[in-house]
Structure formats: C-alpha cells, structure tokens
C-alpha cells in the first residue's frame, strides 16, 4: 500500500478472537470477531467503517484503541506499535479520542460536566488549574454547549441525548488527539440531532486536521462525512473505496444489497418490492471456509465461493473488493501490466 509512508494508523492483518468456553472450561471454539483486517489511515483523513450489527465493528474499534489485544496482526500508530506491550498505551490514549454509541453509558453519572472534562487533563499532567479551566471552557464552546456556565456544573442526566453526546465529543477532543474513533456516535439519536452531531464532528476533523474513523451501520449518513468507506461483513472488510466510487459503483454483492436496502424518503418506494437477499449474517463462532456472504449471495459461483475465501482484488486505485466475481478482471489487469513491463 503506497499510502503507508504518511500513514497515521496502519492496521495489518488484525485478528481479534474471543475464546468461548462452556461451563467455564470446555472450550467450544473462538468467536472470530475481527478476522484478518488491514487498512491504513492518513493524518486528517475521515473514513467510515460500515456494516450490520455483529460484524465486528466495535471489536475492531477497541482493537484499534488498544483496549483489546489482537490475537494476531499489528496496529501501528504514528510509528509506534500499540498492539502488544502496554508501555505506550497511556501516551497513545492521550492521542486518540473515543466516542461511543450510548452517550449516557459513557459518562460517569455522579460527575459534573466540569469534572468529566477535567479528569483527562489532570491525568495527562496539565497541572495549572486555570489552564485546565480554560481548556474545558474552550472544549464546551467548541461543541456548542453554550453559554458554557450553564453546563459546567450539570450532571449528565440533566442533558438531552444530543447534549450528552456533545460532552462525549468534547472529552474525546480535549487532549487534542490526532485520531478520533467514533463507534456509532449517532445511532441512538433522532435524525435532526444526528445531523447536528455529525456536522460538529466534521468541523472538529477539518479545523484540527483530525483523523476520524466513523463506525456506523447507516450508509446513508456516510456520504456526507467520510472520504473513504470500508464495508465489513462477517468480521472482514469485503470492499473498500473512496466514498463516491463506492456509491456509484458498489461491486461486492453485499455492498450492492446494502445500497438497495437503504430507502430514500420517497413515496414511490411503496409501489414495489425490493430485491434484497434473504437470510442472516453468519455466525462468527467457527465459521466455515469460503466467502462468508456466499450462503445469501445470488451470484455465488458453485464449487468456488463456498470453499475458498476470496482475496482482495483491486478494481481501481483504492477500490478493492474481496469477491471471486472479480477474479478475471484482476487476472486480466495483471497480464496487461506484464505486457507493459515486458
């Protein structure tokens, strides 16, 4: 991958498996929550990870944040490995922000907003009280919780869901991180509040050259807020592309299905049935070999797709898809390259 040179974050072949035991000791197997994921992220880049629930998004987020140790593979942030030794983790955590789905669950209920924002500053050695207070007020006004004085001494439960999520955002950015991982930050909010929070996140991203990993199951918000999209299914990234490319030319049958399934607000939708694949996502406990979408796929190639896991084929620069349907395209391209070289 050529973009590696200026990469802020490089995730390579990461597997995060959870061991499942019955009665506490009988090993049943592994839940392969993340099963071979690679990508990299530039400084200031906004990407989205899209996929349905249970596909491994949160586990990937926590692995990237150093909260889970990958079973295999590496995570490199700013030239430092953060997947193994715990030594660098404290410094790392001061450089990444984390925004979770449920803002109320993420905020300690018995702390005032002031204390919630004060704590990371104190832990990370901002000694002067006046300096901390200044930064807390700046952070609050940046997330539009103004007048600041109205919010400083409130408790989380006194705020609406949207306001709570803005406090979480303020906390995520108060240490001036280089990366924010936002795991379904707006899924529990109403449409109108969603837009407000996402626009806020985007403003922070642009004005501080922050890299953002926006994790969501909602593809329709993604086009407004990210430059590149990774589509996850069954613990793997099955397609990645620049946002516009992915929306215009979705190539994996699963991506195509997702796009079909999304409704734009339009009364004509009521007139016809949508062609969407039946069935459910695969179990990640001891999954069978082969493409994980195969059992639901209308275009599966018998004898191949159910047996062998497809590798990523590059359809265009930055547009990769893990699907056997593209094997010829890939082969042909390689031949052309050889001809050029020879």
């Amino acid at each position: 991958m050529p973009e590696k040179a200026d990469a802020l974050l490089t995730v390579e072949n990461v597997h995060t498996w959870f061991e499942l035991r019955r009665f506490g000791f009988l090993r049943v197997g592994f839940v392969r929550a993340v099963d071979g994921v690679s990508f990299s992220l530039k400084h200031g880049e906004a990407v989205a990870v899209v996929g349905e629930s249970g596909c491994g998004k949160s586990t990937l987020a926590k692995t990237v944040l150093g909260l889970y140790r990958p079973t295999q593979g590496t995570v490199v942030f700013d030239g430092q490995r953060i997947d193994g030794e715990t030594g660098n983790l404290k410094k790392y955590h001061s450089q990444v922000g984390y925004v979770q789905q449920d803002p109320y669950g993420a905020l300690p209920p018995f702390m005032t907003i002031y204390r919630i924002l004060d704590e990371p500053l104190r832990i990370n050695g901002v000694r002067k009280r006046a300096e901390r207070e200044k930064r807390i007020k700046e952070a609050l006004s940046e997330v539009k919780l103004t007048p600041v004085e109205d919010f400083l001494y409130k408790y989380p439960h006194m705020l609406s869901g949207g306001q709570q999520q803005r406090v979480v955002l303020a906390r995520a950015k108060i240490l001036e991180p280089k990366l924010i991982v936002a795991d379904e930050p707006v899924s529990m909010l109403d449409a109108s509040v969603r837009v407000e929070i996402l626009q806020l996140l985007q403003r922070l991203q642009r004005s501080y050259n922050l890299a953002v990993i926006y994790i969501t199951h909602d593809l329709s918000t993604v086009r407004y807020f990210s430059e590149r999209i990774f589509v996850m299914y069954g613990a793997k990234i099955i397609e990645e592309a620049p946002t516009a490319t992915l929306l215009e030319n979705p190539s994996h049958p699963y991506t195509q299905a997702l796009l079909t399934a999304i409704s734009d607000p339009d009364a004509k939708n009521a007139d016809h049935i949508k062609e969407v694949p039946p069935g459910e996502p695969p179990s990640l406990l001891n999954p069978p070999p082969g493409c994980r979408f195969c059992p639901r796929c209308g275009q599966a190639i018998a004898g191949l797709c159910e047996k062998e896991m497809p590798p990523a084929f590059e359809l265009a620069p930055g547009h990769r898809v893990s699907c056997w349907l593209y094997r010829q395209a890939a082969v042909k391209e390689k031949e052309e390259e050889k001809e050029k070289a020879g």
Binding site: E52, S53, H217, L219, A257, L258, T260, A261, I262, S263, I273, K274, V276, P277, P278, E280, P281
Partner: peptide
C-alpha cells in the same frame, strides 16, 4: 439490521 429491515418491509 438493514437487510432484515428491508425483508420485513417487503
């Protein structure tokens, strides 16, 4: 989930 949602709407 989205695909299930779509199937139920169908």
């Amino acid at each position: 989930d989205l695909l299930t949602q779509s199937n139920i709407m169908n």
